[in-house]
Amino acid sequence: MSSAYAKPPHKPNLVDNGNRWTITAYNDASLVHRQMATQGLCFKFVSNVGSHQRYTWYSDTFPDWNGWASQEGDQIKMYGDYAKDVGHDGINWEIVTEDRPNTKAMGYGHWTEWRENGKFGVTIVFANAKLQRIGNCNKKFEESSALPLEKSDPMGIETSEKTPEALTTSVQ
């Protein structure tokens, strides 16, 4: 039975060849997939859970933004919280390109960000995502909550820039 499903180790993974990745958002609703913010992410392997490799992650560019990631094959599923856990992110992506120390592996997928409002929630953006491994993290998790807050949300838009849908749902 143990050989009946794919099981770890899955390679490439999120920490060999460097545990620091950048993630860049591209507004999926935009006709030109307008580029939005780029943030840094730090991954730490925790354990294998069945057919998955499980990691924790935190941002070293946006304060108090962190969560869990789970890998099966090349597919990565992530969730995380920010703004004292009122803001949330879900990211599904896949490692695509060559992954060697000098190649900076890239992955692509989808990234959704929203805030709670006691009702349907406030959509920040439904975005496409591009991720790239860029080395190793220097900042520790304990330092990440003290990062300066430059934008209200990790995708990098202010309230005035939110989509009509976000503004509509926020006042319901």
Partner: peptide, 24 residues
């Protein structure tokens, strides 16, 4: 976006999916 605007020319790059390092 579509496949022809602003340019209709795309470069295809291939990587071995079965490789542990996704070799190009």
């Amino acid at each position: 976006p579509d496949l022809v605007t602003p340019s209709d020319r795309w470069k295809l790059t291939l990587y071995w999916d079965r490789s542990a390092t996704h070799d190009q």
